[in-house]
Nucleic acid binder design. Structure first.
Lengths: 331, 331
DNA sequence: AATATTCCCGCAATCGTTTGGGATAAATTG
DNA sequence: CAATTTATCCCAAACGATTGCGGGAATATT
């Protein structure tokens, strides 16, 4: 039996009107102090909890935030989800998790779900397949739902977005690579469609521009296996003083599989550098040196940004999170 | 502007009543075929989407399922979440993710959130700190919200639960260990509070009962570091023909860190066996032999079970998912 | 031609909460 | 003492979708 306490039931018990009960619970000045006391007491007794649907129906806003990512299995997003969840809890919100599975169709469907649920805001990491942005535009224009892209963001600056300082991270990686005094470098980037891959590459290229005697090869890998194969074929070419730079945790896993397959000693026979959230590098011996890209920090930052966007109309802008180098033993 | 299409707007455009529109959209026989056609056409045009709140308010049920886990960062849960999300999508539901952070207080708060949102059902993996089950009971009794425990479940059989066939998995691990012809075994289990740890241990003990010449040591580890330390101190004792059995992916990571720290050759100097979802074992060379405990399969099974529970009142029962041995090179 | 049947459709209440606009007392003022 | 202010409270209309019931018109049955 759905023995849920409602304003109506409290009102009946106290022989007052529903509106008075409603006002009493929020300390409205129109209600007598004595009445407020009695109402609150009974509400407490009856374990009253306001009905979220009724409120949402009336206010046209829910207490849900949505996070849409390609896959929850992606390591980078744990921290992000965790951070948003933590913050959301503080403001009495909850988090809806949606996966796009890198499918533009599902992505669009998910946006519909957000609309249905009139979510208070959406955090989106784009799928690699997204080409049409109308669904996103419509959400903002017609439905007034705050939208914030993170990590995998559109090129267009018509949207709010927060990213890691990708170019900086790439530049940092490039600098570290140069200082490491290596001969040939394999840079393994993520999916080619992602602006994040391009930004990181750009940063890296900028950094190593000066050092013309260093051979750099850029490849894209969208799966662990691809990264493994690229690593193996690179190292089988018997490169001189090699270094492999892995742009993500997933890629790092692939790289290390290749390294282990060839039984190559790190860092003696091959140096490794990664962009990572920090967990995977610690799995290897020696620990992999990495540039930290914290999904957790990104999540915290995004949530604050979301609050600002929700509160006032602000022009779309891009923000970024700075990275930090964490030296290990692979370099 | 919340330019949302409602039944009312459609009705006004067509000069018919709201109820007729509502009925037309669901092919109610009381509506003329021609009217249905016109309504559907306009609804399509105006991009009508029913308001989830209004429906939920009326039906007292939402289209949300909740999943509560200690932490989304736990590897085992990815597959689970993914599976539930996939299935939920098929029935037009969405998934609310809640974390208990292994805190009984937060866990109880989360249950309140579920109540507020009148979720259609809750999937719970218990925190290690849960001792009071009243909040769960109340949810079922008073609020009629289907509750299904998975993975980390209460001992009480007053609840629905689906677990991996933990005892079987333990037994299987025991059998494999025996056949591997080893001398000393370190079994690293998860948190001591969890019934799952006890069940796995029990299964393992049953299997190795016969083989009295094999020395087995059982330890509990609730963190990667603990698993690493236990492994190191075990192997430093220079055991005869050793094997380490890791009960989870997290523990496996710790074990391998220990192995690498001591630079011990697998499987020559030490054999490894794990219970795993399958990803981490593939990270090492040779690949770790493991017994597959698929969160994904568990999720699929749980969702089906949830549907049954929701549809009809059924007696609480326990279900389980069978495991499978995936040989690698570590054994 | 009168009655019964079928087919369409609209009215109105409901879910629980919020809120602007009264309404009724008592208290204050001139 | 009449007029106005104040303190409390209630009515009713939203929000959007659903649904039992009733009614009018067209058709079918006697």
């Amino acid at each position: 039996m759905g023995a849920n306490t409602t304003l109506k039931k409290i009102a009946e018990h106290l022989n007052i009107s529903i509106s008075t009960v409603s006002r009493a619970l929020k300390d409205h000045p129109d209600v007598a102090g004595e009445t407020i006391r009695r109402v609150k007491e009974l509400a407490q007794m009856m374990d009253y909890e306001p009905n979220a649907f009724a409120i949402s129906l009336r206010k046209q806003k829910s207490n849900l935030y949505a996070i849409m990512v390609p896959e929850v299995g992606n390591f980078f997003y744990h921290g992000f989800i965790q951070a948003v969840e933590e913050e959301a809890r503080k403001t009495g919100h909850s988090v809806l998790i949606l996966q796009s599975m890198n499918d533009a169709k599902i992505e669009a469907d998910n946006l519909k779900i957000c609309r249905h649920n009139n979510v208070a805001g959406i955090f989106v990491a784009l799928s690699t397949q997204t080409i049409a942005y109308e669904p996103f535009h419509r959400l903002r224009e017609f439905h007034d739902i705050p939208l914030l892209f993170f990590d995998k963001v559109p090129e267009s600056d018509a949207f709010h977005k927060v990213v890691l300082a990708d170019e900086d991270a790439g530049y940092m990686a490039g600098t570290i690579t140069m200082d490491a005094n290596v001969g040939e470098v394999l840079v393994i980037l993520g999916h080619e469609n992602l602006s994040l891959s391009r930004r990181r590459r750009k940063g890296f290229e900028m950094a190593v521009l000066a050092k013309s005697d260093m051979k750099v090869r850029y490849v894209y890998a969208d799966a662990i296996e691809k990264a493994e194969e690229e690593t193996v074929s690179f190292l089988e070419g018997d490169p001189d003083q090699p270094l492999v730079f892995a742009m993500s945790d997933e890629i790092l896993c692939g790289v290390m599989r290749g390294i282990q397959r060839l039984a190559i000693a790190v860092p003696d026979k091959c140096k490794i550098l990664a962009l990572s959230a920090g967990f995977f590098p610690s799995l290897y011996m020696p620990a992999i040196s990495y540039i930290e890209t914290s999904g957790y920090k990104l999540g915290k930052e995004c949530f604050q940004r979301m609050r600002v966007i929700s509160a006032n109309k602000v022009e779309p802008m891009e923000g970024s999170i700075y990275c930090q180098y964490v030296p290990g033993g692979s370099l």
